[in-house]
Design a protein around this nucleic acid. Structure first.
Lengths: 106, 106
DNA sequence: TCTATATTTGGCAATTTAGCCAAATGGCCA
DNA sequence: TGGCCATTTGGCTAAATTGCCAAATATAGA
């Protein structure tokens, strides 16, 4: 049971780690709206294509996004839409933190 | 607007990064049930106290947990309960991934 | 005050990550 | 086939992260 729960936390951490980067969050955010090819995302992000491609492979390996080749382009989509609720939790943490600091300032 | 959204993604990434570790996830999971002192968590986790203390400081700096000193012990609590919905999203990703691999195996 | 317990901090070695360039791969079309 | 476009991969360096030990700090109690 101990080992099993350890494996569970490792599996979760792997996914969370994949999202733990500003650029990858931006990508996830964009993909929550519509599918995008690497070229679209590269333009959005403003880094080298190879960098964006590597970020995408991190997300793909973690199972956060899915890729589909059509013609010479590769389109990425989110695998599940729950990412939005995920983000709303993060925003709650940010807000809670801000409020607490406001209290301290009084 | 561009810089603003960049800062937003960085703020979010900071919090997500704080959770992106199996041990810290285990801690967050435990704290979602009840408050715990460092000694309790150290026993649970099974690492050196200093290691656990550093994990806790990562979570504290990110605003995920709050600490309160009482006597010679320091008790940690979750700052917001939404972490649970956060985890359920992660589980969805894991499940979606598993199902897709099952399909491939057919 | 002296000691034991609880926690944090400093420091260090090993590992992982990020981002760039250059090169390889794959598809499209003249 | 040859050349162009889209994407991935290899390789490299710089920076960040992890986990341990040792040492510092704080509190409670004899």
């Amino acid at each position: 049971m101990k080992a099993k729960s350890k494996a569970r936390f490792e599996a979760r951490a792997k996914i969370i780690k994949a999202m733990a980067h500003p650029t990858r969050l931006m990508i996830v955010d964009e993909l929550s709206r519509r599918e995008r090819c690497v070229c679209d995302l590269t333009e959005m992000v403003g880094s080298d294509v190879s960098t964006v491609s590597k970020h995408l492979s991190v997300l793909r390996n973690a199972g956060v996004v899915r890729d589909e080749k059509r013609g010479s382009k590769v389109y990425y989509t989110l695998r599940t839409p729950c990412i939005l609720s995920f983000m709303s939790c993060i925003e709650t943490v940010i807000k809670s933190r801000a409020e607490e600091q406001l209290d301290l300032a009084k």
